[in-house]
Design a protein around this nucleic acid. Sequence first.
RNA 1: GCGAGAGUGGCGGAAUUGGCAGACGCACCAGACUUAGGAUCUGGCACCGCAAGGUAUAGGAGUUCAAGUCUCCUCUCUCGCACCA
Length: 822
Amino acid sequence: MRVSRKDSTVDQKYTPIQIEQKWQNFWEENASYAVTEDKNKQKYYLLEMFPYPSGRIHMGHVRNYSIGDVIGRFKRMRGFNVLHPMGWDAFGMPAENAAIQNNSHPAKWTYENIDYMRVQLKKMGFSYDWSRELATCDLDYYRWEQKIFLDMFSKGLAYKKTSFVNWCPTCETVLANEQVEDGCCWRCAHDVKQKELDQWFFRITDYAEELLECTNQLSGWPERVLTMQRNWIGKSFGCEIDFPLESGEGSVRVFTTRQDTVFGATFMSLAPEHPLAHKLTTSDRKESVDAFIEKVQKTDRIKRTSEDFEKEGVFTGSYCINPLTKAKMPIYLANFVLMDYGTGAVMAVPTHDQRDFDFAAKYDLPLRVVIQPAGEDLDPLSMSAAYTEVGILTNSGQFDGMPSDAAKESIADYLQSAGMGKKTVNFRLRDWGISRQRYWGNPIPVIYCDSCGVVPVPESDLPVKLPMDVAFTGEGGSPLAKLDSFIQVPCPKCKQPARREADTMDTFVQSSWYFLRYCCPDFKMGPLDRERTDYWMSVDQYIGGIEHAVLHLLYARFFTKVLRDLGYIKCDEPFTNLLTQGMVIKDGAKMSKSKGNVVDPNALIDRYGADTARLFSLFAAPPEKDLDWSDQGVDGTFRFLNRVWRLVHDRLGLVKQSGAVKTELLTAEEKNLRRVVHKTIKKVTEDIEERFHFNTAIAAVMELLNALQASDLKTAQSGPVMKEALESMVLLLAPFVPHITEELWQQLGNTTVVSETAWPEYDREAVVDEEVLVVVQVNGKLRSKITVAAGSDEETLKTLALTDDKIKPFLEGVQIRKVICV
RNA sequence: GCGAGAGUGGCGGAAUUGGCAGACGCACCAGACUUAGGAUCUGGCACCGCAAGGUAUAGGAGUUCAAGUCUCCUCUCUCGCACCA
């Protein structure tokens, strides 16, 4: 039964544009996806990383949000109370740059972009609770962030210090360590320089231990991301050891993880920035030391910290004493020693550390072997490289003969009891520098007074509003710093003239807690409504790009713990499950304007509709893998939706006379068709729920469509069977393509809407096979396939297999040793 | 160098617990319908072979009645970290 095009009426053609508009209006008017805290339902908090309002959405957004929407719609149909919010990561540089270019204001540019992109997202048919929409540049958002800042300030978690920071000359602002990639700015890719500035920091290092420890509980996160976070936090166990100065005045403290090699330490290397550097320099060495320090400071950090950079140093003229050997050790400054790791001083063991070995070779410093590999006898004179593996201690006094692993423990204990050092733990993680010398961000709510010092803005004076009467010239740094009406304020304490902080907060601060504010975006009494936040948190499923593995995802974890300790929330970790979706690739490269390989979602929607755009991005690859864009693949997806549309319309006549399926009256063909239907329900449910394998779920529905199309049912039961089949197909597709399925659902005679309909359950009896195909192998090779009744016993199978025409020839003249039945 | 992941047709990808390798889709080929087709439908499509059959999951060994899947070695690619003491 096929309806040719000529017989079709016009309204039977699939017209995505009209259908999608119709249902988007319906969802909007009915606020279909708005939710409240319902204690009788199980909550499900679903979140995709919110976009920066750059102007228009791109394919990465389409993919990210389509993945999320499948999960959201599926969970809703499964009966969950689904919170699925959307908002805007709205502060940041591009808005300010656009303002400079267009002689306009960042707020105008940002809000215009938001308005445009909101329309785009609505055109995609995503099931957001738009009543919770927020933009981080809204006063109602950033005012509460200022409150959080003050809380952190009063707890000592926000503090100011002068230090060398990463400076991007193009962006004219500071960058956190996490925001420097390969020595370049994460945003503009320009070389990052070092600059000494007075900056605000968040004490993320206070949480290093917990942030590390909790990675072990995040079983719903990709191992890759956890590994990256663990490496970034970089915990190492070792010792701090004091090396007394030869002069008798004080000592140099080092951090080492190789205290088993202390007896081999023959010289000392300090970072050129080390506070003792100048004090230790003898007058005759002053000239060369100063020259060296200047040279190192001119070298950029990236070069300096690359492994192939030549190790150089200079002798200070001073000595210290090895506390265990009592030997005199010359103190050097060395370019490879970093001030911000450990103590900025390294005990040099040239025999067992390659860097020290190279350094010793260059400056002709003494070598002393203290660890011997099993069955070898290292001779310092003939060594060509450091020996860095485990071994047996030698030349190490009372520790001689001990395995190096055990010696680590014993020597640490000995040093500690002798008061020469202590066991310690060191982290690679640095505090998070949040000051940005830019306008379009959240003002740091602090005032500087000559007599009172750093004074936090009193809570009653919050919020510190971003002034709107600002000129964006693009010259001479942040416009805020030059705006007297903003800068000049009386000191809140002494009322004398004082100055407001001109820096704004890193935009990553806003994204560190937006997921919490979504729980109570209208709350007026503080940053967070404890009751509502506790109901929704934590986020059950978070979805976004891998590029945030250490940036945003680490900061958000840190903030969650801080806000917990401040009493705002209960939960310890923000995101229970994390899905990192792959990139969208075209012609072998990531889609980007600069490569000229972008596909504009608008064009796609106009030509095929949002359902096709969604379906293709879900079908072409599993979510966590990169997606290879194919225009022809999009055509194929569109074709599939047309086939679905036509099939339902072609079978409408059959479906109209339907009642309930009476299983006892079904023909074999009808039973087979039902089996396919219910097997598909089972597979699609499991693929979505357990694995997020949307591509195979869609493939299963495609198979169902193929089976339905091939079927030709004619009996009295055909109507009910077909109706069940078509309705199941429509419901199974609903999370992927919500518009066309609503329309078809209605056309099938339903008065409900799909989004409020329960997800289909498969019938356990209907999926049972009556016959099964059994594969017969001889000596591990496939030789025949036989069809047997389901549940046949082993004996029957054996007989059938051994007498099978295709099997017999293989058994002639051979002794059967074993028959295995699976 | 360290850590993580991957390698399957012309392409994107299936194979969930060791049990028919290549589902589904794209591309391609043939046919049907058509005034027409960039529409639709039917069939074909890993490789070699007319066929029977044989060979195939980066390469090599192994375990097993049976290996894409488990073990060992090698190669290649991607990502992250990297002078971190």
